[in-house]
């Protein structure tokens, strides 16, 4: 799961994420303020402090989101993708064979 050596033109952006309180599902804050399950639809904050300001708001205002945080992601040609092993697995799901993937 190599994550470094990003191709040319890749920039670092910041994404607000968390889990849905009821279902536990991983979600990402999108540009329209809704929560999306696909990382590609996440809002890419160019500045970390902007993302953290939004995170502070989410912590106070959005009870349906649990344990939100900000992570650094890779952006290339307008597409946001994970840049760490942890976020790759969060976005794609476990790499082990699941007994009955739902």
């Amino acid at each position: 799961m190599a994550t470094n050596g990003q191709p040319p033109g890749t920039t670092t952006v910041h994404v607000v994420t968390g889990n849905l309180t009821c279902a536990g599902t991983i979600v990402y804050l999108s540009a329209d303020g809704s929560w999306q399950t696909a990382l590609e639809r996440a809002r890419a904050f160019e500045r970390e402090d902007e993302a953290k300001a939004e995170l502070a708001r989410v912590r106070v205002d959005e009870a349906e989101i649990t344990e939100p945080y900000v992570f650094a992601a890779a952006s290339r040609d307008g597409r946001v993708g994970p840049s760490s092993a942890r976020e790759i697995l969060r976005a794609a799901g476990p790499s082990t064979r699941l007994r009955r993937p739902d």
Binding site: N19, T21, C22, A23, G24, T25, I26, A63, E64, T66, E67, R86, L89, R90, G93, P94
Partner: peptide, 27 residues
């Protein structure tokens, strides 16, 4: 908790006492 009447900070010790973690993908 689901109704938003208690915060995650308040709820977390309660769920942990009942063996419930929030892990990478789900509870």
């Amino acid at each position: 908790r689901i109704a938003g009447e208690i915060t995650e900070e308040e709820f977390k010790p309660l769920r942990l006492q009942n063996g419930l973690y929030l892990q990478l993908h789900a509870y």
